[in-house]
């Protein structure tokens, strides 16, 4: 298995039914076990890329391909991509009143098993409790309705909890750091780090507007997205440069091309 975990080639996408591409030829390779940060100014297409990877129906891919473990996933439904091992931590998770986190996650875990198979209830409960402890969540949290009335921080933590329980091969974290205070940020970051430690093959695409989270999760690669494509890629030091100099130099560089 020499192919990258995630390989995006010439990806172009737009909102279905509208003109104007948001993604205008994205190329990106992410190897197993790597953490990549994807940075860029607002409106550069970072969140669109995350949603397109997960298969959001509002977007239409007009060209290019997304290979996951060597397989083209563009024809797969969002649930099929999920069961294949792709996980998206949402920037704005939907609220689903009346559905408890425990019930929802058990259904999600069971959806990964074969027809008629179910995960042992006690085993599931143990896993859930363990992951909640890791994320310093109150045990009563699992009984709450999914994102219903959650604070911003609770929603983000809940996303990481789901990733911990579902154990994907690839986690795409869409601005998981935004809206978190420093304590919550540290908890979320250490949660992600522990998932990486527990599963050496786990790939993470960390989408962020700020460098702050990169103080706690060290990326192997940093990409900068501008106007719908990757404008610059580099090592962890690229994030430092962006922090110090902003995006202006890149704007100029892109304009020059």
């Amino acid at each position: 298995m020499s192919e990258p975990l995630l390989s995006i080639r010439g990806l172009r996408a737009k909102v279905e039914g509208e003109d104007g591409e948001i993604l205008r030829g994205v190329d990106l390779d992410l190897e197993r076990g790597e953490v990549h940060a994807l940075m860029g100014p607002n409106g550069s297409g970072k969140s669109t890329l995350a949603k397109v990877i997960a298969g959001h129906p509002a977007y239409e891919v007009t060209a290019g391909e997304i290979l996951f473990e060597g397989e083209d996933v563009l024809e797969l439904e969002p649930d099929e991509r999920s069961r294949a091992g792709i996980f998206l931590a949402f920037q704005y998770p939907a609220e689903v009143p009346g559905v408890s986190i425990a019930n929802f996650l058990r259904t999600a875990v069971n959806s990964r098993l074969g027809e008629g198979e179910e995960m042992d209830v006690f085993g599931f409960q143990r896993t859930l409790t363990e992951k909640m402890e890791m994320l310093k969540m109150d045990p009563g949290f699992a009984a709450r309705y999914l994102n219903d009335g959650f604070s911003g921080g609770e929603k983000k933590r809940n996303e990481i909890l789901q990733m911990a329980v579902l154990r994907p091969a690839l986690g795409v974290l869409d601005e998981t750091d935004s809206g978190l205070d420093i304590d919550a940020l540290k908890i979320v970051a250490s949660g992600v780090n522990r998932l990486s430690e527990a599963d050496e093959a786990l790939g993470v695409l960390l989408i962020t507007h700020y460098k702050r989270i990169l103080n706690y999760i060290r990326p192997d690669r940093v990409h900068v997205m501008m106007a719908g494509r990757i404008a610059e890629s580099g090592g962890a030091s690229l994030a430092d440069k962006l922090e110090a100099e902003g995006y202006d130099w890149l704007h100029r560089a892109v304009a020059a091309v």
Binding site: H56, P78, D79, F90, V96, A108, S111
Partner: peptide, 22 residues
């Protein structure tokens, strides 16, 4: 809502049922 639940592995019908049950 549907996309959110489906992105966790529930197929569309299961996701819909879950929303209604909730």
């Amino acid at each position: 809502q549907l996309f959110y639940l489906m992105s966790r592995g529930l197929d569309e019908a299961e996701a819909m049922a879950m929303i209604v049950r909730g």
